[in-house]
Design a protein around this nucleic acid. Sequence first.
DNA 1: ACGGCACGGCACGGACCGTGTCGATACTTG
DNA 2: CAAGTATCGACACGGTCCGTGCCGTGCCGT
Lengths: 211, 211
Amino acid sequence: MSTRHVPCCNVAGMTDRRADRTEAIMRAALALAQEVGFAKLSIEAVAARAGVGKHTVYRRWPSRGLLFLDAVLTLDQHGLAHRDTGDIVADLREVMTRAADLLGRPPWGPLYQDLIGEAQHDPQVAAALNQRFIEPQTADTLARLRAARDQGQLDPDFDLDLAMEILSGPLYFRLLITQQPMTDTYIDRVLHAVFAGMSPRPDKGDTTTTR
Amino acid sequence: MSTRHVPCCNVAGMTDRRADRTEAIMRAALALAQEVGFAKLSIEAVAARAGVGKHTVYRRWPSRGLLFLDAVLTLDQHGLAHRDTGDIVADLREVMTRAADLLGRPPWGPLYQDLIGEAQHDPQVAAALNQRFIEPQTADTLARLRAARDQGQLDPDFDLDLAMEILSGPLYFRLLITQQPMTDTYIDRVLHAVFAGMSPRPDKGDTTTTR
DNA sequence: ACGGCACGGCACGGACCGTGTCGATACTTG
DNA sequence: CAAGTATCGACACGGTCCGTGCCGTGCCGT
């Protein structure tokens, strides 16, 4: 009874045959999703591609959406942690640029988009996505903002939570709604808007407009 | 050969039997979607509920997603047009509040959420949603912002496009990602952040934080 | 050597898909 | 009013995929 009844995604520490199948299934799901998109992703096809019986998939994941979530969240999040160079805007810009590159462009962009789409239909996917990706990410951003405020770079009553959502919101709006590209200049515009209005130093820089 | 080959949703001007079926189908789709959600919405069930053959559905809509789009966009958009009372912030707040009520709460909230979710999988739905709802809405917002700038309420180099996306983005972020409610106080915080930083008058008001 | 467990393969009933056919019905045209 | 035509509902079809049950096999620890 060593590794039994582990519901899903407990890759670390599994040296079993079980771990091999789990990884094979996720890899197959990822490859197929890139080829045909999540909408046409079937458990049957994933199992076949992974060289695995359907049961082996169903034993691990209760739904197609949660399998897809696990597969997509294998993406490398290392670049999305904030450094502290002392310059809050530069540090935020670095992560925002990397996030836009990673989540807004192939190969991960369309998958991430599909994942959020599925989260709109399936509450379990939505909850897991928040818990396993969004919340850690926002916590990191908030910590960096709080450090900047403590260092006196931001006004003491700077609204950290709101700033985080104003930094993220427009990027998600572009990704999910208008589906325009998230360019570096756009990120700069957002940063300028937030930190010209809310920081103590009214340092006017570029107001470059794209359109 | 009068009303033939009208692809879809040409309700106005149809007095045919065709119009009756079209409306019956959309009503059935809407009702079923509210009951079981878009994920479990099948053409068969819609046709059965509408008392209609499947062909009658397929003749009008090429996909389940586009049918759902037409059904959802029957919502009443009247309250989402900006007035011009002379106070840009008040006018924006009015529409934002109404939009949050309409699109963020039952009965339309979950449907709108599902619709955006489907847009992530289906480019046709995404394009149509933008063209038929998002773009008119943003155009209206932009027009109101431009009027305010022309009236001298905003700085001449105020970035209108960006402001629009900073006003919308955080609300969509809450609707689609964190799924937190879009409260009136949150709308006020967003408005304050944008118009404290970008308007010529640094009129500090409420910095009410919810959490 | 043995017992248990996860495995792959296979088959099943069921839900929907998208299409085809057919006779009935309503609208258009002359 | 009558002939013609487009659309309709009903039904049937092959196909895909779902989720589950069963069976024989191979790997595992004991």
